[in-house]
């Protein structure tokens, strides 16, 4: 079994905020991550797939196929305000964790259609000092 990791970049705005809470509770829970209008990041989505090595191609997955999936998924988030413009995050706070889960579920849905490789992990870098790893359910 071989694993392959591939990255794609996207830039998004987000706000750590739960609309069911008061402003005070939001400030208390999210602390320095709270802001009234939100803020932005240059995110990195890193997908790690694993699978058998194809003896004809020498590949776990054709990178063209993987790049197409990663672009489709990152385009859902790129240059958007996640809380306001992405339906999934209307009632789910777009934390690093939830973005990792969102991307994992989206990539996982498409991967099986093009490859025998499976999705092992999605890592979302919110910055160079904070990242989330999600391995699926």
């Amino acid at each position: 079994m071989i694993t392959l990791s591939r990255r794609v970049h996207f830039s998004s705005g987000h706000r750590y905020y739960n609309a069911n809470w008061s402003e005070e509770k939001n400030k208390e829970v999210f602390g320095s991550s709270y802001s009234s209008h939100g803020h932005g990041h240059n995110y990195i989505l890193e997908a790690q797939v694993k699978g058998p090595l194809d003896i004809d191609t020498g590949m776990v997955i054709n990178l063209t196929d993987l790049d197409t999936i990663l672009k489709d998924v990152s385009d859902l988030l790129d240059h958007k305000h996640l809380n306001d413009s992405v339906e999934y995050f209307k009632n789910i706070t777009p934390t690093t964790e939830n973005i990792a889960k969102f991307c994992f579920d989206k990539i996982n849905m498409q991967l099986g259609k093009v490859s025998k490789a499976t999705l092992h992990k999605v890592r979302i870098f919110e910055g160079d000092d904070l990242w989330a790893d999600y391995y699926g359910q």
Binding site: Y16, N18, N20, W21, V29, F30, G31, S32, S33, I92, T93, P94, T95, E97, N98, K101, L130, A132, D133
Partner: peptide
């Protein structure tokens, strides 16, 4: 430092950043 846990349904956090 890596922390692990469930994603809290209300906050979306596994661990509070400030904490």
């Amino acid at each position: 430092v890596t922390f692990k846990g469930p994603i809290d349904e209300e906050s979306g956090l596994t661990v509070s950043r400030d904490f």
